[in-house]
Nucleic acid binder design. Sequence first.
DNA 1: AAGACACGCAACCGCAAACAA
DNA 2: ATTGTTTGCGGTTGCGTGTCT
Length: 245
Amino acid sequence: MARKPIHAGVEGEANKERKGLWSPEEDERLFTQITYHGVSTWSSVAQLAGLRRSGKSCRLRWMNYLRPDLKKEPISKREEEIIISLQRSLGNRWSAIAARMPGRTDNEIKNYWNSRIRKRRNAAGKAGHDGGDSTEPAPAAAGDEEGPTDAAPAPIRSRFPVFGCQLLDGVGSGSGESTQSTTITQQNATDESEAEASVDGESNMLHFLTFDDLDYSADLLVDVPGAMEAWESELCSASSMSSLS
DNA sequence: AAGACACGCAACCGCAAACAA
DNA sequence: ATTGTTTGCGGTTGCGTGTCT
């Protein structure tokens, strides 16, 4: 899986920019530098950390791997649904999609899409109508619905509830323990709304999150049955509305 | 057991936008 | 207004690993 940490021929040349995989020492230097001193410019980060890397490379490493708020676990089924929906509405704007998925990076989502979802769609397309339009691998134009093109994604003007979020005054939901049955009534909120929910007999305040609510820790998210489906249908109608005008 | 192939992922590349001098 | 630098993004590549034959 991981490449060899050092590319022969690149590492050997003193004072030349290093390329290839990052070593644990480089990671530690970069992490320490950013944690304690922050980022002025990325090129200065590379210098101050004593790394023979480009600022660009440092930024990429931080964004995609070292950032403390990154999720380490594999992409879940629900996250996959979100990726599919967002890709349908936004096109291949991976950074915009990533911005709506706390703890996930654009690179991660892009890789996930390219490796799994597109493949699955192509397979489904082939199975559906043999040889039909399967020569076109472009995910957004893969024959399903009227997905926006990469060039002009339909803007989303409305705000829709996406998740229920358990906000329990700092009580971490912990991995795997938030699977209790949650009864909650769906709301079409235009702003963050709240609802009383009964979770295992206890009354907890749940918040619906919208696209603008990006600063909640991802592990506070819990399923709200039906929310995804409702949101997706809203999304489709919003897209078709805005493409008409 | 070994070679071929497919897959997943980290990282690079090129380009464009944003910003500073 | 122009030029140079930095940042951010999407596409692509290349390598290690897993699976199949």
